[in-house]
């Protein structure tokens, strides 16, 4: 579905923030790109969607660009549109009639636990609710590939856990491929099939790629008990 080869990304002539990245994402696969701040994680997603031009390298999309959904770090909803209108925005842009788009948006809002809140403006919603509107906006377009840039980073721990679980359930059920960028290794392991770990920038590169041997469907709270999360065994103390 997505094949990246020798991708180098920078900001206008300076030393590249990330260099020679190779990455593959299969159909229905959930992959994470984990790395510290400044390792160019977000830039990879921006390059895939066409928001940023790579210095060099190949991004081979096996699907049309319209089938990619991008969930930003901040919710970036239009403040002058209601939650329902924001959720319907993508559908309207893709040519759906106003009635169809609003109906589709309302259904997604309901699925994400926002039934009855469609008439509110973003400033009248909590951070978690705004995030769900942003998710509804993207999922209403039925993307086959979802790019997520730490979408729940700004939320408090409980809301974040619930939102992540809901999103995980949805992508599993809908069979959506996901590329998540995050700096949280534990979160990446809990949700992903494959985790790619980036070094720090500049010229960040993949240090390791590991498959996560946890079966699906997953419950985030339950998977934390899986042996992959067990701390390394303490070395036995030798008796004097």
């Amino acid at each position: 579905m997505l094949r990246i080869r020798d991708l180098t990304l920078g900001y206008g002539g300076r030393e590249p923030v990330l260099a020679d990245l190779d990455l593959d994402l299969g159909e229905r696969q959930f992959a994470s790109l984990v790395g510290p701040s400044g390792s160019g994680k977000t830039s990879v997603l921006r390059a895939i969607t066409g928001l940023q031009r790579p210095d060099s390298g190949l991004i081979d999309l096996g699907i049309p660009r319209e089938e990619i959904g991008f969930l930003f770090q901040d919710d970036a909803l239009l403040p002058w549109r209601t939650a329902r209108e924001n959720a319907a925005l993508g559908l309207r842009i893709r040519g759906a009639s106003k009635a169809e788009a609003l109906e589709g948006a309302e259904a997604w809002l309901a699925r994400l636990g926002l039934a009855g809140l469609g008439g509110r403006y973003p400033r009248q919603l909590s951070g978690g609710q705004r995030k769900r509107v942003a998710i509804a906006q993207v999922l209403a377009l039925r993307p086959r590939l979802l790019l997520m840039d730490e979408p729940f980073a700004a939320l408090d721990a409980i809301v974040r856990a619930r939102a992540t679980q809901d999103l995980l359930d949805l992508v599993q059920r809908e069979g959506i491929s996901v590329l998540l960028v995050t700096h949280d290794l534990e979160e990446a392991i809990a949700v992903s099939d494959v985790v790619h770990v980036l070094s720090g920038g500049p010229r960040a590169r993949i240090l390791a790629s590991r498959a996560v041997p946890i079966a699906r469907p997953r419950e985030l709270l339950a998977v934390r008990g899986h042996p992959v999360f067990a701390p390394p065994a303490a070395p036995a103390l030798a008796r004097p």
């Binding site: 928001l51 991008f70 930003f72 970036a76 993508g90 377009l141």
Partner: peptide, 26 residues
């Protein structure tokens, strides 16, 4: 104008006309 809104509309498939209508005019 808030560039995050511009990028959001672009990633949803919006062109110049949509940007003017949905972001710039409001």
């Amino acid at each position: 104008v808030d560039q995050r809104l511009v990028e959001r509309v672009r990633t949803l498939g919006g062109g110049r006309a949509v940007l003017v209508r949905e972001v710039y005019v409001p």
